[in-house]
Nucleic acid binder design. Structure first.
Lengths: 188, 188
DNA sequence: GTCTATAAATAGATAGAC
DNA sequence: GTCTATCTATTTATAGAC
């Protein structure tokens, strides 16, 4: 901690986070991360024993980032309903990324499901951060079956994302976001 | 046509179709397909110039398979509503596959979006087969905005699939299927 | 049409100098 | 802590014998 190399470690994780989202985990090589950071390949192994370890660090970073963002939603809203609408609004804020590369959490899970069940399990914690938070918002608003509503909300967001990305369709995305916001309002 | 090698070509496509679903396109090697078919790697290039060509053949096969299946749904149902419920029922029939590997169409699109936009565009035709058919069912039942309903239905199915696979949750899948069937009934 | 051998490139990972 | 050189395995793809 506080050592000289922590800056490098952080830069590796940040670059890997971005590349894993835009190109996928398996299709991102050490060379890609090296070029993005200007840190030589061989140096990576001072910070991470394996490529899987880099992914685990990325998962930790994403969990922290989402946790901070969700706290921000709560802090800047006046009701759980408003907080949940901010979560939905992320698909609008990140519209270009959604259409180009999908959801960073959902697409990573789908990729790892096929060839690395162990890593898929570890990466699930990012989904769980969102799930727990959404369930708390529904619960705080007095809604029935808050846990189920939280899963339903995440499923709707994932489905909209997959189709908007598959068809490169911003019109569908915007129409669906409107419908999803109405759904949230109808449940609270 | 009718030549000796067509049997081999068919076996390659069938094995690749299965492997692309269960392991993903990029994570499936010629060696994997070779071992699954007992056809030597070198022989593949008699039938396909590149790995991308194999995927295009798989996409054609999937389009034909889904077209036949959807025709079957129509033939064995007494209403467009019933046909649409059969489509939803696929997630139940293929429950184990959904939880293990997701949706073959959706997960392929998500994978290709990240590193092969050209192939993603070509593989979209399988989605379009489902979309056109679903829109026709909604339209035949007299529903308003059949095209939008078709996209919404596919988005719901994709979202349920992504979350059921991410959380390995059959209970969520079954509950969501019930909800989706009720949604279909409410729209027709 | 079928198959073996191998090319050419790239992957993740290691050793060891500095 | 940093970086170069390299190892080993695997990838897609080709050449050419049969």
């Amino acid at each position: 901690m506080g050592t000289k190399g922590e800056g490098n470690r952080q830069r590796i994780v940040t670059a890997a986070d971005d590349l894993f989202y835009k190109r996928g985990y398996n299709q991102t090589s050490f060379q890609d991360i090296s070029e993005a950071t200007d840190i030589p390949r061989g140096n990576f192994y001072y910070y991470f024993k394996t490529k899987d370890d880099i992914l685990e660090a990325v998962v930790q970073a994403r969990s922290a980032d989402f946790t901070a963002m969700l706290q921000n939603f709560e802090a800047s809203s006046t009701s759980p309903r408003e907080s949940l609408l901010m979560l939905v609004g992320m698909l609008d804020t990140n519209q270009d990324g959604v259409i180009e590369s999908g959801c960073p959490i959902g697409s990573l899970s789908s990729e790892l499901a096929k060839d690395n069940a162990s890593l898929q399990g570890k990466s699930r914690i990012v989904f769980e951060v969102l799930y727990d938070w959404a369930a708390r918002q529904f619960s705080a608003s007095g809604a029935d079956k808050a846990n189920e509503l939280a899963m339903d909300l995440l499923a709707r967001m994932q489905g909209i994302t997959v189709m908007a990305c598959a068809f490169k369709d911003a019109v569908f995305l915007q129409r669906s976001l409107q419908g999803l916001k109405e759904w949230v309002n109808s449940k609270i």
